[in-house]
Every structure is written in C-alpha cells, then in structure tokens.
Amino acid sequence: MSLLDGWWDDFFFGLLTVLQVFAVALAIAVALGLLGASAKLSNSRLLRALAQVYTVVFRGAPELLVLLLFYFGMALTLTWFVQLFDPSVKFIDLPPFWAGSIAIGLIVGAYMTETFRGAFLGVDRGHIEAARALSLNPYQVFWYVRVPQMWRLALPNFGNHMLSIMKDTALISIIGLEEILFVAKMANSVVHRPFLLYVTVAMIYLAMTTVITLVVGQLEVRANRHLRGTR
C-alpha cells in the first residue's frame, strides 16, 4: 500500500468528517422522525397533512436532488439575505458540512417518521390503558411504557436507516465536503491509481456499515432479552 503513502492522514480526517456528518444527520433524523410520527398520529388535520407532504416529498425525491436543492438554494437565500445588510458581499453559502448533514437528516427523517409511527402503533393498547389505570401521568406513560416498547419494534428499521445515513455521506463529496470520497478524488489527481483509491474508500465504508450492523444486532438482542426462551 506504499502508493497511498502520504494520503493516510487525509483519509483519516476524511473519515472523521464522515463520522461527524453521520452523528449530526442521525440526531436531526431522529428528532424529525419523532416530530413527524407525533404529527401523523395527532388529532390535528393540519399537522397530519404537513407530515404526509413531508414524507411523500422526501421519500420520493432522489437524495442527490434534495442535497443540490438544499445547498444551492441555501446559498442563494443566504447571499440575498446578507446583501440586504452589506451589498459588497458577492457570494455566501452554508458550509457543505451543514448543508449535507441537514439534507441527509431531512431525507432519513422522513423514513424515520414512518418507522416510528408504525412502532408507536405497535405498542399494545392494553399496556397504555394499564399504565393509566395505575395513575401514571401522560409523561410517565410516554417515557416508561411507550418509548421502551416502541424502541424494540423500531430497531430493525432504525438500523437500516443508520446504514442509509452512512452511505449517503458519500454524496456530500459532490458539493465539496472533504470526506473520504473527495480525498480519493484529490489523491487520484496526483497518484493516478483510481481503482486502488476508490476500493479503499469502499472498504472504509464497508467497515463502518459492518460496525453499525453489529451494534444494532447487539441492541436487538438486548431489547428482546425479555422474550428469550419463550420461542
């Protein structure tokens, strides 16, 4: 692997960027998923309609298109806004890191919405009624009865959504974020070994997705531990 000498540190920092995007996008996706699922299950027709539009649009549009729309759209809006105060500014954009993390969070949040909605509905009504009968308040019902049970039901899909986020981070190289695919492009312009470089990128992603798969598998074992021996 002497061909990659001098590029390992770039790959390392690229990987750190990937992990940061992953963390930020995951946090946004979970927050939006919980909000979306609550909206879809609410009594308000307006909230239900808004959540429906959100999931239809962000699950139907290509990830790349959403990313480009968000990045270039935000640049246009920010430039317009800043020029209101300082007309000498020519161009200002949302850093690719934030544009990319938010765009991916928005997309995967739409998938999370459906997962969480299904999981909330999967919690046995009887358990919630029992909790109320035991005079738990709505906050306690939510955190001690609903969430622990919906979490178990949501885990398999949740794992898949985490894999989507990890793999979607590669797209952000297109708007100029220096993650590992971008590093490989730069390195290739110097060492001209595209196959080796892109396979290296693939292997790094494969390692990341393997870790996620293993962790989710362990979490599932843990979440289902009360069912052990019943089948």
């Binding site: 793999k167 979607d168 695919l181 595209p194 080796l196 892109y198 693939a202 992603y205 494969l206 798969t213």
Partner: peptide
C-alpha cells in the same frame, strides 16, 4: 450481498467508471 449492500452506490459507480480503466 455484503459488499454491495455495505458500500455507497456512488463509490461503486466510481470504481467502475474511473477505477476499472486503470487496468
């Protein structure tokens, strides 16, 4: 299955389009 589901499609596309002509 493990390789193609565990890596981004964009990277697979780059391996085929930019990578293979290396040989």
């Amino acid at each position: 299955i493990y390789f193609f589901r565990g890596t981004p499609l964009l990277v697979q596309l780059f391996i085929i389009y930019y990578g293979l002509p290396q040989f």
